[in-house]
Structure formats: C-alpha cells, structure tokens
Design a protein around this nucleic acid. Structure first.
Lengths: 214, 214
DNA sequence: CTGTGATCATACCGATCGGTTCGATCTTCT
DNA sequence: AGAAGATCGAACCGATCGGTATGATCACAG
C-alpha cells in the first residue's frame, strides 16, 4: 500500500538493484507465509514489481526460492562466524556465543523456525533440499572446528551432538513455544564439550588435535 | 494398481471399517507426499473410495489430516511407552531404549522425518500445529519421568535437552542424511543424564535463575 | 416388499495457481 | 533523433485444487 510512486512505468534504475530488492522482499514473505503460502501474483504486488520482471531475473518461483535460501544460508554462516570470532579464543565461549545468538533469534517476534529447513520440509524434493544439506554441512563444520580446538576425543561426533541440540532447540522454540530452548540447549552443549575431553569410552583416538590452549 | 473388486458399487460393510481404512491409506500418502503434495481426488482413487464417502466421514481435507496426525501421535506415544516399559527399571536403559527405537525408525526406507512436525511446518497455522504442540508435550513428559527417576537436579531442563537431542536427531537424519544421528544423540543424552545427577546448579557462570517449570 | 442409507462414478463449480504475452511507457546508449 | 531494452499493468492460459451435486446401485432393517 505504501509502496509504489517513485517508479511510475519503466525504470531500469540499477540492473542489480532490482534483483536484490526482489530478493529482500521474497526472503521476508516466503519465510513468513511458507513456499506455498503466497502466490507469485501477491509476491510481485507486494514488492511493486511486475511478473515479467520477476520472471526475467529468476526463471521460476522455485529458482527464486532457491536463490533466497542460498543467500540466507550464506548470511547465517557469516553471522555465526562473526559471533564465534567475537567470542575470543576459548572454544567454550565460542560455543556459548553460538547458542546465545540462537536464543536471541528465537526471541524475535518474526521467528518462524529455520527458513531453510522449513522450505526443505515443505518441498521434500526440489532445490531447497540441496540447500538444506549444504547448510547443515557448513554449520557442522563450524562446530567441528570448535570441538577440535577444545581437544575432544571425537570432534565430529561431538559436533553432531551440538548440531542436533542446535537444530532441536530451534524446532522446540517454534513448535513447542519454548522460549528457553536455546538456553537449556546451550548448557547441554557446554556440558557435552566439557565431558567429551576427559571422558574416553571409545578407543582409536587420532592424537592429532591437542594442546592448543586451556 | 491392485484396486478393489470385492466392493462393486454400494457396500456399507462395517461403519467404522471404512473410516479406519481411509485413515490408514491417508496416513501413508500424506506422510510420503506431504499435505499439499497429493490432492483429494488422487487420495480417494488410491484408497478406492469416492469423494462423497471421504467427505461424510471427515468434513474436510484439513480434518482428515488432523485425525491422521492425532492417531499417529497416539501411536507414537504408545510405542515409546512400550519401549520404555520393556527396558526395565533403570532410567539409563529406558533412555537408551528411546533413542534405539529412534535409530531403528530412521533406518526405515520410508522414513521422511516426523510426520507431525512436517505437517505443522507445511501449514504453520492450522490444526497440525496444535497436534504438534500436544505431541511434544507428551513426549517431554516421558523424558521428564525418566529424568526424575534418575534423580537429576532439574528434571524438566534435562528432559528438554533430551527432547532437543531427539528432535534434532530426526531432523539431521532426514535433511542431512545422517544415519548415525540417533546413535550419537543417544550417547549425548546418556552423558547428560549422567552429569546432571551429581552436578548441582552451577554457580556464577550464568546469572539467570532456573525456575523452568513451564 | 419397501424404505433408508451408505456407496460409487462422474460431472461440475469457483477459485487459485505458475507462467506467458502484449502494448504502452520510460531510460539510456549511439 | 532513433534504436534497444527494461519495466509496468493487465489480460490471458491451461492446469489443478477443495468441495458439491446427481443419479444409480447395493445391503439391510422394518
């Protein structure tokens, strides 16, 4: 309603500006309403763009959604990296920072779960699934790095546990209305990282990672 | 394919039999294809039932889905109760049994994630959301009971951590293709239950009081 | 035997969807 | 000035959707 007036009929403006403007609005609406919850017509009307323009920049609604999710995954990765970097060198502080950021996100009024996993769930086949897989892979890498520098026995397994806690907390915050999910998950993750160092129930430790700080 | 012949035109058969037959087929198809992935027409064709019959037993597709999900939640609750009961009296064995059952489920070729959470994600508003909330509540109760009998300091928080691990493992098994998710989650849950007993509420590190009896 | 009601197959309805096309308009480059 | 191209608004398309209506068929209770 408050949108169009500065662009009356034909306005090339910036070649890339239109694309990013479309992406920004699509990111918000596809997240709030779901992939099938909003049609291309309403999408275009809200962003003040004609269908033809949208279909020239992105070939289809699916491709638009894919681009939106990929950009979101990139942004989240940057976000987590920054939060980790800002937490100093201690892997425990870094892990706490990841879950603190999670809790802050869960508290936002527009929170509706993870957009990427939601999309992959809505269209169980299709582009969103691949984006989700890559997204989880990259988030796991961050946690593996933290676990490795905490000198745990099995960094990959420990990181998987922390990723399960992180993902589960987001699900619980969304579908269970549990605002504390990230906080209790943080305590669990820290406890796991603590016990995974000394406690060694399994053999075959690779001895490589060790003795950085502490 | 193997459609029916024993029911040519009009056949009351059993009043409740038709309803449960519809529920059984709808459970399978709505799970495999998603709520919006299959239409009422194909649904009826597959189950060998006319639209009119379906709409007399269930007033709408949404109500059908709600009934399907409610029945599934009940069945899962029974299933988990049985697994716990069969594991004896030790809460650690009971917790392990829950995650072992989870891992067996993840290994099934038809596994597509949790049908209830999937549905609640697909239609973020609507009946599925309420079913999901109740479902998580009841699953949490099971874990609270286990944590309580393990004499942990804060059974509710510990149970929430285990529920996050359980839910997150299912997400990872589905979207990350991680067949071991339930196994590593089980070890994390057992470790948490172990450390949550002796470990008294932490001093200093986090000022926020617990009081999480929600 | 007769009526009641469950069922089937099919056709139909209005709405919505993703996507295309068209003519007009405006900017920018040559 | 003129060509090129981006954009708009709106009409249009075929398909699909959830849901309803119809008329005939069968089982079963009275």
């Amino acid at each position: 309603m408050i949108t169009v007036m500065p662009v009356p009929k034909g306005t090339p403006l910036d070649p890339a500006h239109t694309r990013t403007a479309i992406l920004r609005t699509a990111t918000r609406l596809l997240y709030q309403r779901g992939l099938d919850g909003i049609g291309v017509a309403e999408l275009c009307a809200t962003m003040g763009v004609s269908k033809e323009t949208l279909y020239r920049h992105f070939g289809s609604k699916e491709e638009l959604a894919r681009a939106v999710l990929q950009a979101r995954s990139d942004r989240i990765l940057r976000w987590v990296h920054d939060a980790v970097a800002a937490a100093g060198d201690d892997p425990f502080d870094q892990l706490a920072a990841v879950f603190d950021a999670l809790q802050r996100w869960h508290g936002e009024p527009t929170f509706r779960g993870c957009a990427i996993l939601n999309a992959a769930t809505q269209h169980h086949d299709g582009p969103a699934r691949a984006v989700a897989r890559q997204h989880l892979d990259r988030q796991l890498d961050v946690l593996i790095d933290i676990a490795r520098r905490a000198a745990v026995t099995d960094p990959v397994s420990t990181a998987k546990q922390m990723l399960a806690l992180r993902t589960g907390a987001t699900i619980l915050a969304d579908h269970h209305g549990d605002a504390d999910a990230a906080r209790v998950a943080k305590e669990a993750a820290l406890a796991l990282l603590r016990t995974a160092r000394s406690h060694t129930p399994r053999r075959g430790s690779d001895g490589t990672a060790s003795t950085t700080t502490d």
